[in-house]
Simulated scan of single mutants.
Amino acid sequence: MATKTWKIEKDLCRCCHGEGAFNNLAEPRTFLDKVEVYSDMLRECLDIDIPPVPGELCAITYTICNACIARLRDACNFKKQVQDCEQRFMTLYYKNAIQGLKPATKVKEEIEVSIEHAQSDTDADIVLKKEDEDDDDDNHFLGGDDDDGMSDDDLPIKPPKQSVSTMKTRPKPKPKPKAPPVVKKLKPPPKPKKAEPKPAKEKKGEEKEEFTLTAEADGTEKFTCKACGKSFNLKPLFIQHYRHVHLKLRPKLRGCHLCSDKVPSHLRTFHMEKCHGQPAPSCGACGKKFAYPARLLQHQKFYHMGESDYRCEPCNLKFKSRSKYKYHLVKHGDVKAYKCELCDKSFKWKSGLNCHMLIHKNIRRHVCHICQESFVQHTSLKYHLTKKHPEAI
């Protein structure tokens, strides 16, 4: 059997085998402020893994045309729409929030129709007998046949006389007397209920004061939860513990389309890699893995390519996000926007004002693990350790 040679002059679309100038399947591209990686979209939406081939054909055969991109994008959007609708439907269903409308039954008004009862067979026989008797009486008075030779059949036929009883009409019903109007008694107005005080909602930042900060012998800090006694090395870990366990503010779980597990959105890619073998977005330079392709692109631009949209001109520092850049700019300014209401001190950052207010409230969160003396600021605790307990440092 003769083999056919396939000569590729331009890029080859791996989805429709069209040739032209196409986009790479693994290269992130932005569409409507969203980063798209077409190889990941094929894997997640259609469960199709298209691997690149090694050698010279790798670059020109690992592309996709615009027509296939549009169809792939529609498929991904439709899949997301179905998943969102199904999740919302099941949530409302289990909450008994879906009800069917019962069809309204229409009651038709009955129309009164007067029906004349037909004569029974016995009544008809009685009428015929009476007519025969009348005919006999007529023949008796006539005295047989006349001289003209006219017989009884030649006489005109008289219509039978209807009895008075059969001509009676149905009497009209008498109108019913109208009932006197019912006077409704007005109910006394209900007594106003006493407004019960609503329970105060916990503010978002209240978890900051729900721990005890202690310093270990090696200088490390311990954040101990006042509610359950658990200790954490980092403050963000304590905040996450307090919000999830004690405030019940757990992140919403998202169901996996391949199994029955439910995981948070930021852990979905790692679940797909661990349980179903679908690799998570990872950096080719350092191997770091990310939950979203956009985070991977941001990481590559900032750490490996040196690109940043936020650069401080006085000190020539670059920042990854706009919030960190704005927080840094306050350092160069002389404006202290946060002022204390109890004294004349002012601060550049809000965190400085919050820490200063603890002095007025006499809230001492930092406790020495040796002599149990407490301090408002962490720097005061460090100074105390260097002066009073230098052997513990």
Results as ranks from 00 to 15, higher is better:
residue 135 D to L: 14
residue 265 S to V: 10
residue 101 L to M: 12
residue 358 L to H: 12
residue 96 N to F: 01
residue 143 G to E: 03
residue 31 F to D: 08
residue 361 K to E: 07
residue 300 Q to S: 04
residue 51 P to C: 09
residue 217 A to K: 07
residue 60 I to H: 02
residue 348 K to S: 02
residue 129 K to H: 10
residue 72 L to C: 03
residue 69 I to T: 07
residue 369 H to W: 15
residue 25 L to E: 00
residue 289 K to I: 09
residue 357 M to L: 07
residue 218 D to A: 02
residue 277 G to D: 05
residue 178 K to C: 12
residue 340 C to V: 11
residue 346 S to F: 01
residue 143 G to V: 02
residue 133 E to W: 11
residue 151 S to K: 12
residue 375 F to R: 06
residue 360 H to V: 10
residue 31 F to V: 12
residue 153 D to C: 14
residue 340 C to G: 05
residue 205 G to P: 04
residue 343 C to M: 08
residue 328 H to C: 02
residue 308 S to H: 03
residue 105 T to S: 03
residue 370 I to H: 12
residue 374 S to A: 06
residue 52 P to H: 00
residue 333 G to C: 04
residue 113 V to H: 07
residue 183 V to Q: 15
residue 170 R to N: 05
residue 81 Q to N: 09
residue 2 A to Q: 08
residue 50 I to T: 00
residue 43 R to L: 01
residue 213 L to F: 07
residue 338 Y to H: 05
residue 170 R to V: 12
residue 306 G to Q: 04
residue 31 F to W: 08
residue 326 K to M: 09
residue 174 K to V: 15
residue 178 K to N: 05
residue 301 K to A: 04
residue 318 K to D: 15
residue 253 L to M: 15
residue 331 K to N: 06
residue 298 Q to C: 10
residue 285 A to T: 09
residue 362 N to A: 13
residue 233 N to M: 11
residue 300 Q to N: 08
residue 88 R to Q: 14
residue 309 D to C: 13
residue 376 V to F: 09
residue 171 P to M: 13
residue 172 K to C: 09
residue 373 E to L: 08
residue 237 L to D: 08
residue 199 P to T: 10
residue 365 R to L: 11
residue 335 V to P: 02
residue 179 A to Y: 06
residue 246 H to V: 03
residue 56 E to C: 04
residue 368 C to E: 00
residue 272 M to Y: 02
residue 261 D to E: 14
residue 332 H to G: 03
residue 139 N to W: 09
residue 66 N to K: 11
residue 219 G to R: 00
residue 291 A to S: 06
residue 348 K to N: 00
residue 353 L to F: 05
residue 239 I to H: 10
residue 176 K to L: 05
residue 228 C to V: 09
residue 265 S to M: 04
residue 222 K to S: 06
residue 309 D to K: 04
residue 48 I to T: 10
residue 256 C to K: 09
residue 190 P to I: 01
residue 314 P to C: 05
residue 144 G to R: 04
residue 181 P to M: 12
residue 104 A to Y: 07
residue 274 K to E: 05
residue 119 Q to F: 14
residue 168 K to M: 14
